[in-house]
Design a protein around this nucleic acid. Sequence first.
DNA 1: TGTACATCAGTGAACGCGCGTTCACTGATGTAC
DNA 2: TGTACATCAGTGAACGCGCGTTCACTGATGTAC
Lengths: 211, 211
Amino acid sequence: MRVKKKAGYHHGDLRQTLIDVSVDVIDRDGLEALSLRALATRAGVSSGAPYHHFADRAALLAAIALEGFERLEQAMIERRDAAPPDPVSRLDAIGQAYVAFAVSNTGHFRVMFRDNSPAARNAALSAASQKAYRLLFGVVEECQRVAAAPAGDPGPLVYAAWSLVHGLATLWVDGALPTARVDPARLAPEVTGLLGRMLVALARDEGARRA
Amino acid sequence: MRVKKKAGYHHGDLRQTLIDVSVDVIDRDGLEALSLRALATRAGVSSGAPYHHFADRAALLAAIALEGFERLEQAMIERRDAAPPDPVSRLDAIGQAYVAFAVSNTGHFRVMFRDNSPAARNAALSAASQKAYRLLFGVVEECQRVAAAPAGDPGPLVYAAWSLVHGLATLWVDGALPTARVDPARLAPEVTGLLGRMLVALARDEGARRA
DNA sequence: TGTACATCAGTGAACGCGCGTTCACTGATGTAC
DNA sequence: TGTACATCAGTGAACGCGCGTTCACTGATGTAC
């Protein structure tokens, strides 16, 4: 992602360019490979320029994470609303959107969930991540309402669903899946589909036992 | 984990000490905070000493990852064999061992699954990780054999189970779980238990449909 | 048991490097009159 | 429309720092005889 020749002295949108280039670098070489100096060079700008847009390296990463959570939420909403209207299909759509987001926005994804991520300290950031999280919560509760998921506290169901897609995304993105044996792109819908069928089956099972 | 006063000129077991201190540093401050120089200082040794035991920084990390996979496998075996003999309990035990390992060996865990981890390039390392992975595979097949999991290709089941525990472990270790609302220590058995019940329910469901 | 010597595992100074960040500066842009 | 000036967003040199790694060295240890 080399940057287009800048028009003149002023860049135009250096702030966004820095984010875009950062994400690209992190995607390819990992977070530890990101240096502000190399970044400025790649953006075609001197080493001091980024400081007119970000207080420091941490602020840049926080901005990336924020953009990531916003995009993730957007992607999940779109995919959910394009799915068939039954809750299980909607849950499936959200799960697939999550994994797809991680794979096609790996740079963002890595920053969003980095250990010691600034999420804990930045209010806007944790608000954005909670909004995304609530989407999942909502659709799990929809499933419960139509008995497509076991009744009771939705907590474990929500965290199980989140863990499932987060784990798959992480393993994929980190190259831990044995790609010789398995095609992750095919695996993702299989796994999210499996979750849906399992939830339905367990709900039916427990419903039958209760009756 | 300050290191005991060294006996004399020779350290005794500097190699293992370096690994232990590294893991401790990574656990607390993350992988990017690990420098060989600071590490040597913390181990009470000069900056050149580590090079008598590891060719470079990457070799140290590879050794940590290898030890991690070996310990993970060991922990899963122990927990599995201490569980009730039915396959679902054994699967549950393995899952809980996985999460528990990540939480109490965070330094190892981070190195093991780091993006661009050396796993891809180091034969011993990928062998060790595959051994651990096969444990999970084996117990899922046990479940299938007693119809405690849906019949057919075990692949999706295995990867779903792996994703579930890996995701939970990762979210926990990275501090992404909202600990104000949820106690991860209580969540782990709930989630692995849920998986077991879902597998059983789905197997019953599909068995009934087939009959 | 004692001595000579090879090897092992340390020391600590030195190297070159890229980093984050600062700062005085300057060219470009926008606005008031 | 033209001019003065404030502000914005760049430049590029400079800072101090900690890093990974190398290397000539030396003290400690093990072994052969």
